[in-house]
């Protein structure tokens, strides 16, 4: 089973990971604010669908995503 870990305080909510996750497992968490003042991205994978393709992490300009597989 694969999953990603998001360093929420590094996330700037740019949304590039969301756009690149073909399984739509990443969402902006509107009711959360991080130290930088952005709404960070959260990983929602109830069904364990994540394949660990790394697309989200590769595109994250802030290196805020780690992928485990």
């Amino acid at each position: 089973m694969a999953y990603v870990k998001i360093n929420k305080d590094r996330c700037k909510g740019c949304g590039l990971c969301i756009q690149n996750c073909k399984l739509a497992l990443l969402v902006i968490v509107e009711d959360e604010l991080n130290v930088l003042g952005y709404h960070p991205v959260g990983f929602v994978d109830g069904e364990g669908e994540c394949k660990g393709c790394k697309f989200c992490a590769e595109t994250c300009p802030d290196c805020a995503i780690e992928v485990y597989k």
Binding site: Y3, D9, A57, D62, I65, V67, Y68, K69
Partner: peptide, 20 residues
């Protein structure tokens, strides 16, 4: 699960000042 992607060793663990 093992870490398959993360911060490269040569990239210091500090946040970038760049825009989102």
């Amino acid at each position: 699960p093992k870490k398959v992607y993360g911060r490269p060793e040569s990239l210091k663990d500090v946040g970038f000042h760049f825009c989102p």
